[in-house]
Amino acid sequence: MTAQDLPRKVKIVEVGPRDGLQNEKETIPADIKIALVDRLTAAGFANIEAASFVSPKWVPQMATSTEVMAGIARRPGVLYSALAPNMKGFEAALAAGADEIVIFGAASEAFSQKNINCSIAESIERFRDVAEATKRHGLRLRAAVSCAFGCPYQGEVPLDAVADVVARLRDLGCDEIDIADTIGVATPRKVHEVMPRVIREFPIEGLSGHFHDTYGQAIANIYASLEEGITIYHSSVAGLGGCPYAKGATGNVATEDVLYLMQGLGIETGVDLDAVVDAGQFIAGHLGRKSNSRAGNAIAAKRQQ
């Protein structure tokens, strides 16, 4: 496939404020989170994962989600997503004005048992009430399929297992399904195996690639996904987010790096790279460490010369 055959336009879902920040040990004040979301809104994202309505006991960093959702400056047409794994979470997300509800299921039976003590089928069945309530209230429903390219406990994940989870989530009424490389072990060859298989189960325009950069393969995997016709990608400003299954490893691919790739390929994103670099430097500065984005740091350094 030549560059001319790649998609001409993609949607970048910014997950930094939720997926990126949730594992930070130091409590980040709500006003910093609000400022980050507002910077990302101004940068032009059409979809920002802004909150998570889970028990603060399990994810203390997300305890300020209601405050964050109330404080952000919303732009018409932008989807502000919230993770809601149960009805209590859904009610809180609904009250907070979430535009999209996010649920999740693992493609690995071992991962599902180890993390939530139940089978994949049981875990997805638990989301049925949330899915039905989401559709009843006219909100979008998005689901993530974790460990779609490999599992920290069982290793290889069969293609049919990934396809089965996608089909189950499709039947719940999902508008979009994320194919996630939770531990960052995918390579382009694996992407060329997984994506065509899931495309048989769900419309390609509703499938997204969610890649972690644990082994430095995320950008290559995104390019491979573009070759398969995938047009939605998840990324995290400044590369926020660790990988809990690989000590010291980076997690989500950095948004700045993804935007730099798309810009170089002439693919439209509707997002201002310079504004995202500013947002990345802002949050990295607050966290007291360097951004994990190579493109972001290079552009910031170039500005200072």
Score class of each variant (00 low, 15 high):
M1K: 14
T2D: 15
L6W: 02
V10G: 03
V15K: 00
G20F: 01
N23D: 14
I28L: 14
P29N: 15
K33G: 00
V37E: 07
D38F: 10
T41W: 09
A42F: 07
A46H: 09
V59W: 06
T64G: 10
E67T: 13
G71Y: 00
I72S: 07
R74I: 01
A82T: 06
L94E: 14
A96L: 08
G97C: 12
A98P: 01
E100T: 01
A107S: 11
E109F: 01
E109W: 03
F111K: 01
K114C: 08
N115W: 00
A121T: 11
E122F: 09
R126D: 00
R128F: 04
V130R: 02
G138M: 10
L139A: 08
A148F: 04
G150P: 08
L159R: 04
V162Y: 08
D164K: 14
R168Y: 05
L169S: 04
L169Y: 04
L172A: 10
C174F: 02
E176L: 13
I179L: 11
A186T: 06
P188G: 11
P188S: 09
R189L: 13
R189V: 14
K190G: 03
K190A: 12
V191D: 06
V191R: 09
E193L: 13
E201M: 12
F202M: 12
F211K: 05
F211E: 04
F211M: 11
Q217H: 08
N221F: 08
Y223T: 00
E228G: 13
I232M: 14
Y233E: 05
H234W: 09
H234V: 06
A238C: 09
A238K: 06
G242F: 08
Y245P: 03
G251L: 06
G251H: 00
N252F: 00
Y260V: 03
M262L: 12
Q263G: 12
G270W: 01
L273E: 08
I283H: 05
K290R: 15
N297T: 10
